[in-house]
Nucleic acid binder design. Structure first.
Length: 574
DNA sequence: AAAAAG
DNA sequence: TTTTTGA
DNA sequence: CGAAAC
């Protein structure tokens, strides 16, 4: 898109403008047609400058990277003063969670700045979610004008400070000239029903074409409903609703898909009609949605809390090695009706089946959820242990995947991928055994629950899955283990990619989320006639590897080669 | 359970 | 109405 | 080889 055409209709991008609808995608552009520089035109022709302060580190990283990509100029203000490069920018937006502190920081830094506007981080999130300019007015926290501070007596406490500022802001809001252009326009509320409906209907069919930005940073607006739907999903699986396991799975999955679809909606659903406009919500799910909107609760969900069997099954099913089938068998046939009984009886069980279970159950009461920060630290430890031991360097690179890569704040397991560094990529031998032993020696891995076999020697593997008939040279090395960090135990999954060129496909696959992956693979099948898996892309007919050019080296390359708009990991949390 | 294909 | 739903 | 689990 040329910048010239932008200039001509710049005014129409303001808060209130009734913009001409482009291809039916008005509310947000979650489809393929992305206006990359939608933040680059603010007041005059200067880019909009955005300061992020003070925010949690991870949030700041994510917002900063993406606002910049959208064309905004990012000014990093931390406590210590940095150097020069003053932006003589008119429109300065300060994105912050703490207006008082932010104001102090900004004032210390810069006297010449005019028209500073403090906005909630929600604004930035929405801008990115909708991929377009969003009026900041409803999100404004406080407005500061340098001239007004000088005239007013210096207030000591923050409370007073805030009060006067608010007063000033309401005055200056009327005084249009002192404000950046986007503030001069009147409020544009997102309660415009027609616009909402149009947005919902305009969402692309496949989850891999949408983005879910709010998930990683904030609780999404429809989070409560999503959680309820996911509880119903679990319940349907536990109860084996609908006869066979497969039928239960298909029906349960519909609820998961509905939840996933809702996670791409940047505003809170008010009516069933809103929900109806969404893809993958049919009559059954809508009746649940209606129940929720009317009562705030769903009876089927409450059963999960009241019913003893369902409660115990839920506990069992969370144990490594126990799926829905085994959980039911233990409860219904073996009459094991509590976690304590499970621990006791399985320890007396001699079968090899129970072996893994026992290994895991030994840690059951010590297992803890990790925070994002810890997961990142764990990757560091793994990397250290693998490469710096005074022994031969394994030349590995590591990649955090799973929920933590998508920016989720906590999780019960850490997924780490590894392969040889580029210089050593020709070597496809397995290092799994060596890596495990090094991690055991450093004390990170406490117990190996399961590891893939045949890692020695050539190990050429041909997979002839019925549906794909795909062929690849090496199976991935997989380790499921229990690890210990800071006195906490948790599940650690390691995946070794022996053909290093497959790494970008493996990274996409292991970064999830599950619904995102399903739709990505389904999209490949439908739109391209290709089969996508953790090894690469294969032609459905011939089973041959599809030669993508240029050969993808990163996730971004893969999206590009497929013809999909790139979605950052945190945009895949559906 | 929902949507696409037949 | 039948088929498909990730690998 | 198929079921179950991840």
């Amino acid at each position: 898109m040329s910048s010239k055409s932008n200039t001509s209709d710049r005014d129409e991008h303001g808060p209130h403008a009734k913009r001409p609808r482009k291809g039916g995608l008005s509310y947000a552009n979650q489809g393929l047609k992305t206006d990359v520089d939608f933040l680059s035109r603010g007041d005059s022709d200067r880019p909009i400058a955005v300061i992020l302060t003070p925010l949690r580190e991870r949030q700041q990283q994510i917002l900063s990277r993406n606002l910049k990509a959208a064309g905004a100029k990012i000014l990093q203000f931390d406590e210590r003063k940095s150097e020069d490069e003053q932006p003589a920018t008119e429109g300065l937006v300060v994105v912050t969670d703490n207006p008082k502190k932010a104001r102090r920081v900004v004032e210390n830094r810069e006297e010449t700045m005019k028209n500073v506007v403090f906005v909630e981080t929600k604004w930035a999130t929405r801008v990115l979610a909708e991929q377009r300019w969003v009026p900041i007015q409803p999100y404004v926290l406080e407005q500061t004008k340098a001239t007004q501070h000088e005239s007013s007596t210096v207030p000591e406490s923050d409370e007073i400070n805030l009060d006067t500022a608010l007063e000033a802001s309401s005055k200056s809001r009327k005084n249009a000239d002192t404000l950046p252009v986007w503030c001069r326009k009147k409020t544009c509320e997102n309660s415009d029903i027609a616009e909402k409906r149009e947005f919902l209907e305009g969402l692309p069919r496949f989850l891999c074409e949408r983005c879910t930005i709010t998930q990683a940073i904030y609780e999404a607006p429809n989070n409560e409903l999503c959680k309820l739907l996911e509880i119903i999903e679990k319940k349907r699986r536990l109860e084996q609703a609908g006869g066979s396991e497969a039928e239960a799975d298909i029906r349960a999955r519909a609820y998961r898909r509905a939840s996933a679809a809702l996670k791409c909606v940047p505003f809170k659903l008010q009516t069933v009609q809103d929900a109806q406009a969404l893809h993958s919500l049919g009559p059954r799910v809508l009746s649940i949605v209606q129940e929720y909107l009317m009562n705030g609760t769903v009876r089927e969900v409450q059963l999960m809390e009241t019913d003893h069997r369902l409660r115990i099954l839920t506990q069992f099913q969370s144990v490594y090695g126990l799926g829905y089938v085994s959980a039911r068998r233990y409860y219904d046939e073996l009459r094991i009706t509590s976690m304590d009984q499970l621990v006791e009886k399985s320890s007396r069980d001699e079968s090899s089946e129970a072996n893994v279970l026992v290994r895991y159950l030994g840690y059951i009461d010590k297992l803890a959820h990790l925070r994002w920060k810890d997961a990142v630290a764990v990757v560091d430890m793994v990397s250290q242990a693998a490469n710096v031991t005074g022994e031969d360097d394994l030349h590995l690179r590591f990649q955090l995947c799973g929920g933590f890569r998508r920016g989720e704040s906590s999780g019960h397991d850490v997924d780490i991928l590894y392969c040889r560094q580029e210089k050593y990529a020709h070597d496809c031998s397995s290092v799994m055994k060596e890596l495990i032993s090094r991690l055991e020696r450093t004390g990170l891995i406490v117990k190996v629950l399961r590891e893939s076999s045949d890692t020695n020697g050539w190990n050429e593997v041909r997979y002839h899955a019925r549906s794909s008939r795909a062929i690849f040279r090496y199976a991935h090395d997989v380790v499921h283990a229990i690890a210990k960090y800071k006195g906490c135990f948790f599940r650690l999954d390691l995946v070794g990619v022996r053909d290093a060129f497959e790494f970008c496909f493996t990274t996409i696959s292991w970064s999830g989320s599950t619904p995102f992956q399903r739709d990505l693979r389904w999209w490949c099948e439908k739109k391209k006639g290709w089969t996508f898996n953790e090894h690469g892309v294969f032609d459905r007919e011939s089973g041959q590897r599809v030669k993508l050019n240029p050969e993808p080296k990163s996730e971004m390359d893969v999206f590009a080669a497929l013809g999909l708009t790139y979605r950052a990991p945190f945009e895949r949390s559906c």
